[in-house]
Nucleic acid binder design. Structure first.
Lengths: 119, 119
DNA sequence: CTAGAACCTGACATTGACGTCAGAGGCAAG
DNA sequence: CTTGCCTCTGACGTCAATGTCAGGTTCTAG
C-alpha cells in the first residue's frame, strides 16, 4: 500500500510516517518513481511504534528496542533486551507517579465537593 | 525565605520559580531591593504545581484549577471545579493508555525471554 | 571594606515530534 | 489529455518548560 493508506489505517499523519523512516523505525520499498510502498505488516508496526511513543520512549530509544521485535533471537537482541527492561521500569515509575497525581486530584475534588455541598 | 532556598526545598530550579510567577502560579512579596520572598506554604504550593505538571497539565490549565486550591468556596471555583474533573478524567485515560503500553512491553519481554531461554 | 554568593531583568537557545508550505512530479478516471 | 488527488524532497515553524548567558545589583561573612 502507499503512504496515504498506511497513514489512515494506522491513524497517524503522512508526515509522521516519513519521520519514522528518517529515524530508522520504519522501512519502505520504493517504486521506480520513488514512491513508498508498504506491506500489510507495516500497519501493526506503526501502531506499535505509536504505543512506545505514548509510553514516553524517544525515537532513539525505540530504535534501540526494535531488534526485540524484528528478530528476538538471543545474539542480536542483547542490548535491546536490556534496554527494554530499563524502559519497562521507567514506565512503571512514571505510571506510579501519575497515580499519585490522580490521587492528589481526587483529594482536592473531594475537598471541594465538601465545600460545595454545604454552601 | 528567598528564591534559592525555596528552589532547593521544593526541588526545582530558580528559573522555574520565576517562570511559575510569570505564569501566575506563584506569588511573592518583594523586598525593598526587589528580591522575592516566600512564606513556608510556598514549598507545598510549588510541590503541588510540579505534581500537576507531571500529570500533563499545562501552565494555563493549572492556573484555571488553582482557585480550587486557594479558595474552595462554591462561587469562585465553579469553572475551576469543572476543569478539575475534566483533567482528572483525562489523566485517568492517559494512565490506562500507559498501562496498555506496559502490557505490550511485558508481552514482548516474555516473548524474548522465551527465545533467550531456548537458545 | 571587600570578596563571593545570591539575586535581578531580559533575552536568546534547546528539545522532539511533528505541522505546514513550496515547488515539482506521478497516477487513475473520464 | 487533463483534472484532481497523491506523493516526493527540503526546509522552516511550533510549542512549552526550562537552560543559559549577559550585565548589573544586593546581601553576607570575615
Amino acid at each position: 500500500m502507499r503512504i496515504g493508506e498506511l497513514a489512515e489505517r494506522a491513524g497517524v499523519s503522512v508526515r509522521s510516517l516519513r519521520y519514522y523512516e528518517e529515524q530508522g523505525l520504519l522501512q519502505s520499498e520504493r517504486s521506480a518513481s520513488g514512491q513508498r510502498h508498504y506491506p500489510e505488516e507495516a500497519v501493526d508496526r506503526v501502531v506499535f511504534v505509536q504505543r512506545l511513543y505514548a509510553g514516553g520512549l524517544s525515537s532513539r530509544t525505540i530504535l534501540e528496542v526494535l531488534p526485540c521485535v524484528d528478530n528476538p533471537s538471543a545474539d542480536s537482541a542483547d542490548a535491546a533486551f536490556d534496554r527494554m527492561l530499563v524502559e519497562r521500569a521507567r514506565l512503571d515509575d512514571h505510571i506510579k507517579d501519575l497515580l499519585r497525581t490522580r490521587d492528589a486530584l481526587d483529594e482536592l475534588i473531594e475537598l471541594n465537593r465538601g465545600f460545595r455541598a454545604t454552601v
